[in-house]
Design a protein around this nucleic acid. Structure first.
Length: 434
RNA sequence: GGGCAGGUACCAAAGUGGCCAAAUGGGGCGGGCUGUAAACCCGCUGCGGGAACGCUUCGGAGGUUCGAAUCCUUCCCUGCCCA
């Protein structure tokens, strides 16, 4: 094990706040002396098994603890998730079954080990102890804190002021999270800066239960693609780490220039000094910001998919967006269009084929363009399909389609490339049916 | 328990008997432009038919009316004040 002060410096990098620094130093020193690893707790919501770049900031920090030989607990808040997170709006959470939770946990595992060490990570569920509390014990827990102190929370105060509802169970949320730390005997808990309140409550709760309070470490919140809100799945401004390379690449390319530098800081290992230099050169037009963004996108894709995939994604992006060409074969979704030869007599009944092949067969081999769009779920409704065509968003083999009543005559054996919008490509494959 | 204010489309928010499929903003989508899926500009944004039109929408259920998001009854939900 490394000396305590060395560990401290390593861990401090990239954190927003450590409460208290001295306590962490003391804990590290004791850990070295007694050869006993620290227990580091980080909680995750069971309902969002899509890990995105925002999560990776803290996952990287967890990895650092692992590298230093400490025990990292990846805590899935299946109990707290059920009672609802106060930061969520008013939407009632659907009750999750045990199976769903287990399934989400598996999804987590499949993703987090792209960053964390699977051998060293302890995965736990807080329903294990919170679910086991008797109502008597639960009351006991709620007696440890006061309403006024809970309402100090900025989030609650705001809601109170603006007249938004706060449910009782939301008030209990921080207490439950605090009890997690008691149950785990956590030495350290990490979370985003938005978690600071909950993390602090946990310290109090631990004291109440006669434990040494945990050190809390907050990590920066990553802004989402919009550059305004924090990255979250529900806001749709996120990049999932399980997304396809070209998707990750494209999403990164869509961020604004100022945001790009923040991402450089939080999502790459490039030293701060070098980032500052790039920023300066971009401002002086010595470097094309686009190139910097390409490098960032490549670096992020490479983290999850490797260098080769990153290069491929970059080439693909250029092909489609810079040069306006047709994407690589692998990135075109293939749609089989059933047709029939004009001679064959056929009933007007739609044939039962595979779901994706649900085109209705017409009496001639002509097919309405709108049918193709709607029946294959490329558009949610006929109205929208028409709108799309009217606005010039549909191309077939490079030619813009401008007639909403257009009937296509697709010949079996040939293939057609259909483009919807700027970046959706489909290959239509007519197939003769008996 | 009493009083008051509210519940409108994906979200926020106008609309208080016909001109309301419902202003506006955000979001989303399409087009243009661009180093970019950025910024900016333009357009579209309930469903169905090519438009005229029809159908389903304004918390739920009933009712008044030729006609209701708008009026009445009742129920559910939210906030504030009083107890």
């Amino acid at each position: 094990m490394k000396p305590a002060d060395e560990q401290f410096e390593y861990l401090k990098k990239g954190c927003v706040e450590i409460i208290q620094e001295d306590e962490l130093k003391a804990k590290l020193a004791r850990s070295v002396k007694e050869k006993k690893p620290l227990k580091v707790k980080v909680g995750f919501d069971p309902t969002a098994p899509d890990i995105h770049l925002g999560h990776t900031v803290i996952l990287r920090k967890m990895k650092h603890f692992q590298d230093l030989g400490h025990d990292v607990v990846f805590l899935i808040g299946d109990f707290t998730g059920l009672i609802g997170d106060p930061s969520g709006r008013s939407a009632t959470r659907p009750t999750m079954t045990r199976e769903e939770i287990a399934k989400n946990a598996e999804t987590y595992k499949a993703q987090i080990f792209k960053i964390l060490d699977s051998k060293k990570t302890i995965i736990d569920f807080n329903s294990r102890w919170l679910g086991a509390l008797t109502s008597y014990q639960f009351l006991e827990l709620s007696a440890k804190y006061t309403v006024a102190r809970i309402l100090e929370r900025d989030d609650f105060t705001k809601r109170l002021k603006t007249g938004l509802p706060i449910s009782l169970h939301e008030i209990l949320y921080p207490l439950c999270q605090g009890y997690d730390s008691v149950a785990l005997r956590a030495d350290v808990e990490m979370g985003g800066t938005d978690q600071k309140f909950n993390l602090l409550v946990a310290r109090e709760i631990q004291r109440e239960y006669g434990q040494e309070p945990q050190v809390i470490i907050t990590t920066p919140l990553l802004e989402g693609l919009d550059g305004v809100e924090k990255m979250s799945k529900s806001l749709g401004n996120y990049v999932g780490i399980n997304e396809q390379p070209k998707e990750i690449f494209g999403k990164i390319m869509s961020i604004s220039d100022p945001l790009m530098f923040k991402y450089y800081e939080l999502l790459t290992d490039i030293p701060i000094g070098q980032i500052a230099r790039c920023k300066k050169e971009a401002a002086e037009s010595k470097v094309n910001p686009r190139d910097l963004k390409v490098n960032l996108a490549k670096s992020i894709v490479a983290d999850f998919w490797g260098k080769a995939e990153a290069e491929k994604a970059a080439e693909e992006f250029d092909r489609v967006h810079k040069n306006r060409e047709i994407p690589n074969e692998d990135n075109i979704i293939k749609i089989v269009i059933p047709t029939k030869s004009a001679k064959t007599k056929i009933s007007t009944q739609p044939l039962k084929i595979n779901v994706s092949d649900s085109i209705q067969i017409s009496d001639t081999s002509e097919i309405d363009i709108i049918d193709i769009l709607v029946n294959n779920e490329l558009c949610p409704s006929r109205g929208e399909a028409k709108r799309l065509i009217r606005q010039g968003g549909v191309h077939l083999d490079g030619a813009r389609i401008d007639d909403i009543a257009l009937k296509l005559e697709l010949k079996p054996g040939k293939e057609y490339i259909m483009k919807i919008g700027k970046r959706r490509f489909y290959k239509l494959i007519p197939k003769e049916m008996k």
